[in-house]
Design a binder for these strands. Structure first.
Lengths: 341, 341
DNA sequence: CAAATATACTAAAACGTTTTAGCAAAATAC
DNA sequence: GTATTTTGCTAAAACGTTTTAGTATATTTG
């Protein structure tokens, strides 16, 4: 049967001292609270002997801190986010935090629901990849003094901590690389959405094409069509309507996935003939034939920064005083698919 | 500043009634506890008005239930596990449970550490992909009456709930399929480990080859060598030492990854010439050239079964009475890579 | 040597719930 | 018209911690 775990009370009773003393000792306040060396040792030894573990729930109730962070992404099964989660997990555990991962599917209602669920208090802080319409919710969290760090995207004009990459530069570099490799008609496949990171990627692409006297050629697929699985049809049409296309730049990893599927299904030869670049790296890209050039986000650095920004918020009483907006550089991993044909 | 969330006390004070009454009403026990219709409505209305949410921590402390499950896998960034996690997440939330995901890296020490961390009580139940040496820990959890469901693998002879696939049948079918397609020298790349699922896969492969008068040709890479990233060297040697190999069957998704990398780096032509099958499907397989045949695990069914087995355990006082060992069928997704050349 | 300070320890409140045990009035039974 | 049962509500304990506000003795200070 379920053994009742040992409590501070058990230790106090056994040693015939008060729970206060035990608590002080276990919290390392023996010195400060003038508990004698001998008694301190006795408590510590006995606690170890019976393998005492504090009841986190009780601690949380008393201190108001749960030692739990929420890591809310678009979709935890997306390669980019799961790789990120794996790294963040380790960093958080090292600092004594547990992490609850959840997926908002880029849906405002789901986001709000989840944030309410982990409502006010049970959770110490939020790492959030925000869906487009939850600016107010985020603002409210900050007003309520709850630690929030936005990830991957942010809200223009909202004063909130964030860790993002330089999307414009990343897309600019990738596009410029294709141009250097003599591609003249580079299709840019992206989503029609209000997400800040997509704006950045689009303008980076446009900047590079414009600077080089090329005509931007963009396919913006409405986000809800992608959700419905109709992204591939849009891409197929795009390809058919512009037979002169000589390169494609996919603005997200799932668009690259869809794009490659379309090519494979309709005209496999194009995979070799077109210049191809995908946003976000994937382990499979390097073994694809041709291997696929990608814009790789610095996963370790992102995770590290997230925690670096989060930690002070967790200590502070007032969350609003300083807000850090971290912008990290990406790396263009050049492989076969983007080289001049 | 942080607004103190409203408590049951606030409601009681405002309506000039006791907290007991409020609690009864909010827990749907109004009828049973003879709270009048009018008062019940008043409480419900006011609670809604001020948007009352119970403090989960306090609830947990009192009830001993945290409404949190731990989902411990080998590596949450592994495609198979992250896809599974995504589905399980939804199912658990539907039932009012939150999920903490964590990765044990198939390491016993890490596993034990994590289990101790979520120790006794803070967490209502464990879904565990067990590392090879934690049989005793699992046994102790069960003794302590803590709900555990093993996933992906189990311990021979240990009476514990589990949801796994029929590995032997899966490997048998895949191998037989290769044989049907006229492959005569099928290399089987697996790990040398004590994990039950790997035993099953190996014996399925051996059964199929033996039954068809073929000689089994197995590469067993020690698990610690894989961890160290030396899996590729082993595969490279294997390929060099046996030039007559006409097909390869990879027993896990990361072995398939490594194997394809080796082929791409050393002899890309082989990717087209060899018969290839990978265990665990990957979104990229269908767009690979050739598209890769895979043994696909029923992710939705696995997640559903996990919760189906877990839920009764969470209700019951005694966890040991019935133990369910669920074995699910896999699907062989036949693509270009395994067809007769 | 009285006053101040340092040392060693503790009682009790508090965190926000749930639940047991029970009180009082109203309705029903005999 | 008394005894029983039903109805309507509540006080207080409990979950396991942390922390505030002490008490009492020993030591130092001037």
């Amino acid at each position: 049967m379920k053994k009742k775990p040992v409590s501070i009370r058990n230790i106090a009773d056994e040693l015939k001292i008060s729970v206060t003393t035990v608590s002080f000792v276990l919290n390392g306040k023996a010195k400060e609270k003038y508990i004698s060396k001998e008694l301190t040792k006795k408590v510590l030894d006995y606690a170890k002997l019976i393998n005492y573990r504090p009841n986190q729930i009780a601690q949380s109730l008393r201190t108001g801190k749960s030692k739990i962070l929420v890591f809310m992404v678009e979709d935890i099964s997306n390669n980019f986010f799961s790789k990120l989660a794996r790294i963040f997990e380790d960093i958080a555990y090292e600092k004594g935090y547990k992490v609850i991962f959840c997926s908002n599917e880029n849906d405002d209602e789901k986001s709000n629901e989840l944030i309410t669920l982990f409502n006010f208090r049970q959770v110490d802080g939020f790492i959030i990849v925000p869906s487009p319409g939850i600016r107010d919710t985020i603002e409210k969290l900050i007003e309520d003094n709850i630690p929030v760090v936005l990830l991957d995207r942010f809200f223009e004009g909202l004063d909130c901590n964030s860790v993002v990459i330089d999307n414009e530069q990343a897309a600019y570099d990738a596009t410029a690389h294709l141009i250097q490799n003599k591609f003249k008609n580079i299709g840019f496949v992206t989503t029609a959405s209000d997400q800040s990171q997509m704006h950045g990627r689009l303008s980076g692409y446009e900047k590079a094409t414009n600077e080089n006297g090329l005509k931007p050629n963009t396919l913006q697929i409405p986000f809800h069509e992608i959700i419905k699985g109709r992204g591939k049809e849009y891409i197929k049409n795009f390809l058919e309507q512009d037979p002169d296309l000589d390169a494609m730049f996919f603005a997200t990893n799932y668009l690259a996935q869809s794009g490659l599927e379309v090519l494979k299904e309709t005209n496999p030869k194009l995979i070799k003939d077109l210049g191809l670049i995908a946003f976000d790296d994937n382990d499979m890209f390097k073994i694809y034939d041709p291997s696929i050039t990608s814009v790789s986000q610095p996963l370790v650095e992102i995770s590290t920064k997230l925690m670096e920004v989060m930690l002070p918020l967790l200590k502070k009483k007032d969350v609003t005083e300083t807000s850090h907006k971290i912008i990290l550089k990406t790396e263009l991993i050049i492989r076969e698919s983007s080289l001049a044909k």
